[in-house]
């Protein structure tokens, strides 16, 4: 029924072990999954913190990464009645890439609804928390040689999240611009704020390329 489940424990385990290696305590690692429940923002938060970025740039990066959830909400909300059970403020907490994907398919097929979204999301959340907890408990019990360089899971995670999104030329261009810009400006702006600038500039380049392609086509 929910084909995306197997990927969730693997991601949460890898995240928890790497976050532990980056200096977060077991409780903090579990708190990240419990309260944030957004994998990519959690990895970004821990990776940026470990690289010495400041509070504001980390929170802004997480906000930018999570703005897509606003669009998931808008898209789902169109199919829902004004009042739902469970209520929308509760539903909203659990919106993720995975639960959105599952929910919108069932809504468009005229089955499912608020309760389906809630069930799918809460079960993902529980699995996510359980796997994070397991990973957090494993940290420190692994052989010392094995935990050296574990933080390298972070860049690998970003690669694995990025590659499936590169569906066209503009997407590829945005990724290249962002990587090159980051390489050039990293460390130039204090407090790790360069990441926020790079995200905004590169997304802007994507829109500009879109509009050029749009005018060329007409």
């Amino acid at each position: 029924m929910f084909p995306l489940w197997p990927g969730v424990p693997a991601f949460a385990l890898a995240f928890a072990i790497a976050a532990g290696a980056a200096g977060f305590t077991a409780l903090e690692v579990v708190a990240l999954s419990l309260f944030i429940f957004a994998g990519s923002a959690q990895v970004a938060t821990v990776a940026l913190y470990a690289s010495g970025a400041g509070f504001i740039p980390i929170v802004l990066t997480a906000l930018l990464l999570n703005l897509r959830h606003t669009f998931y909400g808008l898209s789902i909300n169109r199919w829902l009645p004004e009042r739902t059970t469970p209520p929308k403020p509760l539903l909203a907490f659990f919106v993720t890439d995975e639960s959105y994907g599952m929910t919108i398919r069932s809504l468009m097929a005229r089955r499912g609804g608020a309760l389906y979204l809630f069930g799918a999301s809460v079960s993902l959340w529980l699995i996510f928390i359980a796997s994070t907890t397991l990973g957090a408990l494993l940290d420190g019990r692994l052989p010392a040689a094995g935990s050296a360089g574990l933080e390298f899971i972070f860049p690998l995670t970003f690669v694995a999240l990025l590659v499936p999104l590169l569906r066209g030329r503009v997407e590829l261009a945005v990724a290249l611009v962002a990587a090159v810009l980051m390489y050039l400006v990293d460390g130039l702006v204090p407090d790790g704020a360069s990441i926020v600038l790079v995200i905004l500039l590169s997304a802007g380049v994507g829109v500009a390329l879109d509009e050029r392609a749009g005018t060329a086509a007409t």
Binding site: S40, A47, F158, L165, A178
Partner: peptide
Amino acid sequence: YVPIAAFAALVVP
């Protein structure tokens, strides 16, 4: 484009 830009930039360091 934000997630694409963010992930690509986050890989670099």
